[in-house]
Amino acid sequence: MGLRAYIVRRLLLLIPTLIGVTLLIFAVTQLFSPTQRASLYIRSEKEATPENFNRIMAKYHLNESVFVQYYYWIIEVLHGNLGYSMSKHMPVLNAIIGAFPASAELVIFSIPLTVILGIYLGTISAVHRDKPLDHATRFLSIAGWSLPTFWFGLILLALFYDWFPSGRLGAVARNVVFSTEFTRYTGLNILDGLLNGQPWISLDAFRHVVLPVITLTVVQIALIVRVMRSSMLEALGKGYITAARAKGLNQKEVINKHARRNALIPVITLAGVLTAGLLTGVVITETVFNYYGLGYFAAHAAMQLDAPAVLGFALFTGIIYVFANLMVDILYAYVDPRIRLG
């Protein structure tokens, strides 16, 4: 059973899992009355009138059995109609797609930083177990985890706002990006800047992303360090480490080649969870730095009790977690060949 066969199997499993997610969200919608549910189908503000609600209830059979309702609802969802968000004055799907790139940018920079730095520190901690270096590393990472995100963010902003301002773009850059001469291919400002041949925009966007990324990394690194440390300690106690040493491998090779790969397995799961969590929004960081991504969108919608938006967001979250799990599983199978049989 090779890696490829395993990947194909997991991809096939994807479909029932996604259906499961939709079922879950649908179950939550059933907690509302039919009139409220009708708001999930309207596409613009004009449609939110009582007469229209009756029409919608008839069209989508909202008074009939759950199965019929699910059928019509799922068709709408697959067409991209997640309802209309009153708080944002645009269709939910558009709002989500609009907010996503900001969160994606935060993830692209902070996850690799967190994971790589965390693995390195966790290894050091494990190798020098119970010695001052171990205690220092653990203390620093726990301190990071104990920081109130908004507090740390505010302090960073107050100290460095000159070089690393808040928001996603400076005023000048913003005018350019939203003008007609600039094409927003991806919504990721750093990438778009390069694609449009305007590297200074990328630089500007990069300057704005530094502080949020640092905040996120400092706060989350403790999680990776802790897991890496304990799984490394476990790996170092195994028989193959002594066997490797008996072959004549030195300490560095033993740690880097033999122990580390085995220790990475739980870290991969954690990295997946972190990525999904970040993608679905870090409310506080986004609020403090005015970096308006999915978290900010969802928090805003929740505070306005904007049901279609919140539900649409929950559906989106579920899908992201499913894909994150998929990535984690595939990475697992690449690192640990024993998984490929299961």
């Binding site: 028989g239 193959y240 002594t242 066997a243 008996a246 033999h258 085995n262 690192v335 640990d336 060949p337």
Partner: peptide, 11 residues
Amino acid sequence: FQEPGAALNPV
């Protein structure tokens, strides 16, 4: 070594 399964690195 005594246990060959333990002496070999599984990955």
